[in-house]
Each structure stands twice: as structure tokens, then as C-alpha cells.
Design a protein around this nucleic acid. Sequence first.
RNA 1: GGGAGGAUUCCCGAGUGGCUAAAGGGGGCAGACUGUAAAUCUGUUAGCUACGCUUUCGGUGGUUCGAAUCCACCUCCUCCCA
Length: 406
Amino acid sequence: MQTIFDTLKERGYIAQTTDEEAIKKLLSKPGVAFYIGFDPTADSLHVGHFVALMVMSHMQKVGHMPIALLGGGTAMVGDPSGKTDMRKMMTKEIINYNANCFKSQMSTLVDFSQGKALMVNNGDWLLNLNYVDFLRDIGAHFSVNRMLSAECFKQRLEKGLSFLEFNYMIMQGYDFLHLFKKYNCMMQLGGDDQWSNILGGIDLVRKKEAKEVYGLTFKLLTTSEGKKMGKTEKGAVWLDPAKTSPFDFYQYWRNTNDPDVINCMKLLTFVSMDEIREFETYKDEKINEVKKRLAYEVTQIVHGQEEANRCLAQAQALFEQGGKSDTMSFTSLSDEEKENGIGMLDLMLKAGLIPSKGEGRRLILQGGVYLNDVVVADPARQFTKADFIESEAIIRKGKKVYHKII
RNA sequence: GGGAGGAUUCCCGAGUGGCUAAAGGGGGCAGACUGUAAAUCUGUUAGCUACGCUUUCGGUGGUUCGAAUCCACCUCCUCCCA
């Protein structure tokens, strides 16, 4: 009989555990409350959070009780772990707004109905603490000497660490204690960068309550080259369709590097291990098929089946048939522009394909602009109504960016 | 509190009176090769009504024919000593 721990291990989620045997035993019976914290530092979850949501979902499926902790209190301080610079301080209003955005996104993967999972906000218990009481009650149990040797502060000890951020670990530890007392929360999970913070909480529970609780970290989603995944030149890949369109989201996974595909499949989809093992034997061009599957599965989980189908169809239309697509982004011209024509550069600027005309001129001179699949050679070319084919025209920039003019 | 140094184009980082829209690297974009991949190679990377013009080197003011470069003040940052 395979346990949830085995599943997580097999799929490659687990990075570190505090006590593997004890955790295995603990998780073998359903109903274990565990928590994962999410600091609302942006108005949408991103791919980095997605792995955590997947773990929650896996755990919930076998009957454990996820507690999603929104860091309304800790976000006021800012986690220095692994950060090279201090974060910008955020206002309470923004933090609250962000926390609300997180809620709905989490619900797509974790079932919060009928008490099957909880969502709490540490602002509820952190923000009204009395400073001196807190120091005497909690602060006394933390050794500065030990904290300073923690891996998560290492980088910051060289570049500078404010006292504000130094307290983050203590606050997170207090969260664990609070959740243990209130919900009998036995485990904290988190990204591997949270290891020191998690240990802090476990120590605190042991000291205050004389009980053993456990920690488990999962691997951060990185490429085979060790770079963090989920970042593009435009910033993070968001789960919010308004910030990263489902199509861009789909395309991000569609373009995964060969060596990373299997790993992503295991971590980001629910595709069975039997099937994944089959995929592992694929080579060269055949890997492309796996990428299609990966993109579809991940998009489906985040944006739903309907949206995933649409992305798939659009990608096929664009890349495999070279044809049109109804869901392509578009710009409509006014009657006057249609009548008098408009410069290609002006048109592309209007369509948001280029940030400036200089950039557009360069693109055209380098042969990177196509109108209805014909290279545009002259930067001064005018776009006229003669360019419409069945009342629309398609501009392509480079290989992958399509835009429709109507 | 005392002392030293720094702030340069998307990022890192040269430049210390005209040759500087500013080296080099990273990143981005485009082209070649491909599998909508990676790696590699090539070009390009402030804006414009473009052989010219305008804006840019933390902010403000000044010196000069001419300033990213010199001076004054201001803001912010880092380091060392206490």
C-alpha cells in the first residue's frame, strides 16, 4: 500500500524532512492538520506557489487537512530568506487586497468546503500582540546566536539585514505554535527556502508545549540549470488570467526545455506515474508531444478544461496550420484609417507590438515582421485596405507573436 | 557621534572636460540552424517628422565656448571606527 509520503517522494516533491520515519507514520492515518504559509506580497499567486498548492491537493485527496495560512501579518515584516535586498514595505491596504486575491485562486486546487480545509490569516493574531509581552513569552526562547547561523540569513549578513526582517523567523515560529494550539496542526510544509523558518517553529512548539511537530520542505521549481522556473522577461508567470493570459501561460509550459519536462510533469500535474514513466523513454522530437500534454494539463488545472481546450486549439491554428485564430489578440482600425491607410510602424505601435518606432524600424530591417505571411521589407510601408483578406489582416512579429487587424 | 566611499542607459559595471547616446558583460529583440525546445553563430538594443534633431549618467544650482566628468548644496546608500 502506497502512502501519501511515498507518493510525494516518488513525484519528487520532497527536499528535506525533520524526521522521515515519524512523518511517514503520522501521515499513514488520515486527518492530519498541516499548514503552508503564503505571504500576500503580490496581487496574484505565481508558479512558485503552484507547487505548494499541488502538495496541498495531494495531501487533501488522501484525507489530510490543509490549512492555508495567509501572511497578512508576516507580509508586514517581509521574509529575508534568500533575498539579496530588503523588500519594499507594503501598506496594510495592499496586503489585504492581495490576500483576497489569493483566496479565490487557491480554491481552484484546494477544496475549502465543509471544513475540508481551512484558510486563516496570521494578521488576526500577530497584529495585536503586545511588544513586551511577546518578547518575554516568545522572544526568550530564540537564541540570536543560533538564528545568525541559519542559512537563510547568510546572504543578508553580508549585504545588510534590518532588525525588522530579522524578526520574521520568530513571527513564523509563533504562527506554528498558534496553529498547533488552536487546530492541533502537526506539520508545516513549505519551499526549501523556508527550512530555517520551519525549524524555528518546531523548536518553539517543543519548548512551549513539550510536543513534537514536524516539518517538510519541497523542492523549488528550478530548471536543470538551477534557475528558478516561472520567470520570464516580462516578470513572473502568474496564475491570474488577467496578469498572464491563459494562452501565454500555456505557451510557457509548451516551451519547456527538454530536460525539465518530466520534472514539471511530476510536480505540476496529476498525470499518473505509470504514464510519466512511459514519457521518460521518449527522445528528441517525440518529447514535443509530452510538452503539449504538460501545457494542457497545467493549464487545465489552473484555468479549467474549457480554457485549456481553447489554448490548445489556438496553438494548433497558429503553429501547426499557420492559419487564423479567433482568439488571437486584435486591433480594430477606424473607418478613416481603413480609408486613408496607416503606416506599418504606426499600426504596430497602436497594436502594442512594438514599444517605439525605432524598435519597429529595426525589426523590419532585420526581416522580423510579416504581413499576411509575407515579409515586410520597407519600414515606410503603408498599410491599406488592399491588405485585408476577408476583412482581416494578420501581422506576425518574429516567430511566435501574432496579431490580427480588423 | 566620527571617518571613508558611492549613486551611470533594463541589470551589473567602465568612463573622470570635447573623439560619449556613453566600453564590456548579462538580459531582451530579430535572423540562421531546429522540434513552437536547448545550445551555438550573426545582427541589434534612448526617442523622433532621422545623413539631422531632442532627451539621458541621484536632485538642484553654478563654472566653462563645451560637463556623466569640475564646484556648491541637498537626498539616498554602503563600509570602517565608537
